[in-house]
Write a protein that binds this DNA or RNA. Structure first.
Lengths: 159, 159
DNA sequence: GTTGAAAATAGCACGAA
DNA sequence: TTCGTGCTATTTTCAAC
């Protein structure tokens, strides 16, 4: 039996992106405020064409939003950490709500495995980190890994 | 001895953001392509004023970039996972390079603790996940937690 | 997808609070 | 300093092709 690469799994009703869409995404990923006129120049199309393509990428859900990359350190949050959170029996939903209501958790995924939550935490100081984690300690066990740096900065998936 | 809340830790030469800057960040976080004129309307200032503030936020490094939030699922990457990666002795840098050279890893933090790397993985299928993880298996031990959903979608830190 | 015109927007200089 | 006004250049949008 020959092993074959599976085809790209596209959601129903979708078209694969062509090379120009890929370039558009790549350029917008670096600077989403680029004027359509210049984006057009970069991808070798007219401005109305790229504007239409961008609109299509948005309505297709490929582009979920145009947003800003905010540097939490520039805001004084000098410590970042990834926190694995394991609620005590019966406390899953309470803990999830606590996480959501703690603004220092700027991201939290629900995952499989021993620890149902994996959250990204930003704090100004070790003391603040302790405050946040202690607030969970009656309801969950946490494992904290301080972020020392990034090997891969957020990037778009291969197109 | 009285315990006091530490002051907000600002980087040297920086000013705290005022309420209007906070609103600007909050609005741009939702739609970074908003015209300055409308952003101005939303925060109650004139267009040149907000444009100047946005420029200042960029040059101060608070806004690192304007970018797009791309939905990996809309691109066919139907499985996301967080992978903890522990290189075998002496293979730290080799493994880091392997991660960087694997485009399905769309993010990777270097963290303290038993597992030096924590990476976000997107794949089209379980088979593709196996391919990616197997490529690491000679040089590292991995622990994979499949993402079932998000409790907290990426948001900006409290201002 | 392209071109060209109209409308909206951004950028700049200057004045006011 | 920080914000507002008026002008000009650029950009976006919509039409027709």
């Amino acid at each position: 039996m020959t092993k074959v690469k599976p085809p790209q799994n596209l959601r129903s009703g979708e078209q694969a992106l062509d090379a120009i869409d890929a370039r558009i995404l790549s350029v917008l990923d670096k600077d989403a405020r680029l004027p359509m006129s210049e984006l057009a120049r970069l991808v070798g199309l007219s401005a109305p064409s790229v504007a239409e393509r961008v609109r299509r990428l948005v309505s297709d859900g490929v582009i979920r939003a145009f947003t800003v990359d905010v540097d939490s350190r520039a805001l004084g949050y000098q410590i970042r950490a990834m926190v694995r959170i394991r609620p005590l029996p019966g406390k899953l939903h309470l803990v999830e709500k606590l996480i959501q209501d703690t603004p220092q958790f700027i991201e939290c995924d629900k995952v499989t495995g021993d620890d149902p939550f994996l959250a990204r935490l930003v704090v100004h100081s070790i003391e603040e980190m302790d405050d946040v984690l202690e607030a969970l300690s009656d309801h969950a066990v946490t494992s904290t890994a301080v972020i020392k740096g990034a090997s891969v900065k957020r990037r778009i998936p291969p197109l």
